[in-house]
C-alpha cells in the first residue's frame, strides 16, 4: 500500500509538471493529428478496402506520436538535473521505473484517445460496438510500448544523440508488439469473433510480461553511474 502511495507521488509529480506546461501532451496530439492528415492525403480519396489498412495506420500513428513522449520520461529529469533527486527517493529503482511507466502510459493513452476520436471522424469508422475488445488491445499494446519505451528512455538519457538513438532502439524491439496489435485490431474491425484474437492477445501479454520482468531485473544497472 505504501509502495503504491510512493509510486503515485512520482506519477503525480510528472502529471503536475506536465499540466503546468502542457508542452508534451499538446505536441503529441498535434503530431498524431498531422500524421493522420498526411496519411489521408497519401492514400487518396478512393481507397479500396479501408478496413485492411486502418489498423496499420492507427498503430503507426500511435507509435510515432508515442515516441515523442518517451524521450521526455527520463530526458527531462536529466536536463533539469533532477535525476539524482529522483534516485534519492525512498523507493527502489524498480518502483521509480514503474512510476515512469505509469506516467508514460497515461500520456500515451490520452494521445491515443484523442487520435482515435479524430480517426473515427476522418475515416468514418464506427467503433462503438467493438469498443471493449479494441480498448483491451490498445491497453495491452500501450503497456508493452510504455514498458520498453521507459527502459530505453532511461538508456538514451545517458547518450549524446538522444532522440535518434531512442527511435533506433525502440523500433526493432516493438516489432512483435506491432504485429500482434495490428493483427488483433484487424480481426476485430473485420467483425470476426473475439476468440480469433486470442493468439494475438497471448503475444501481447507475453510481450508485456517479458519486458516488465527484464526491466525488473535490469533497471538498477541502467540508472547506476
Amino acid at each position: 500500500m505504501i509502495f503504491i502511495r510512493k509510486l503515485w507521488a512520482i506519477v503525480w509529480k510528472d502529471l503536475l509538471s506536465e499540466l503546468r506546461t502542457k508542452e508534451m501532451i499538446l505536441s503529441m496530439c498535434l503530431f498524431s493529428f498531422l500524421v493522420l492528415i498526411i496519411f489521408s492525403f497519401a492514400l487518396g480519396t478512393e481507397v479500396m478496402d479501408l478496413k485492411t489498412i486502418v489498423p496499420g495506420i492507427l498503430w503507426v500513428v500511435f507509435i510515432f506520436s508515442g515516441l515523442m513522449g518517451l524521450g521526455r520520461a527520463f530526458g527531462a529529469e536529466r536536463d533539469k538535473g533532477t535525476l539524482s533527486g529522483l534516485l534519492l527517493c525512498p523507493l527502489s529503482p524498480w518502483g521509480i521505473y514503474l512510476a515512469k511507466v505509469v506516467g508514460t502510459f497515461i500520456f500515451t493513452a490520452i494521445m491515443e484517445i484523442f487520435t482515435l476520436s479524430i480517426f473515427i471522424i476522418l475515416f468514418n469508422l464506427n467503433l462503438l460496438p467493438v469498443l471493449l475488445p479494441i480498448g483491451l488491445i490498445i491497453f495491452l499494446g500501450t503497456l508493452g510500448f510504455s514498458a520498453i519505451g521507459t527502459l530505453f528512455s532511461a538508456m538514451s538519457a545517458a547518450t549524446k544523440s538522444r532522440d535518434t538513438i531512442l527511435s533506433i532502439l525502440v523500433f526493432p524491439i516493438t516489432v512483435p508488439m506491432l504485429i500482434a496489435a495490428v493483427k488483433a485490431t484487424e480481426t476485430i474491425l473485420a467483425g470476426k469473433a473475439v476468440a480469433e484474437v486470442y493468439p494475438s492477445l497471448k503475444i501481447l501479454i507475453a510481450f508485456d510480461l517479458i519486458y516488465l520482468l527484464i526491466a525488473y531485473l535490469t533497471f538498477t544497472f541502467i540508472i547506476e553511474e
Binding site: M155, P176, I179, A180, Y211
Partner: peptide
C-alpha cells in the same frame, strides 16, 4: 541490458510473425 533485451526479442518476434 540491451544485449539481453535484444535476444529476448527473438522468440516473441518469431511467434508474432507466424501469426502475421
Amino acid at each position: 541490458v540491451f544485449g539481453i533485451i535484444g535476444f529476448a526479442n527473438v522468440p516473441i518476434t518469431f511467434f508474432a510473425i507466424r501469426l502475421w
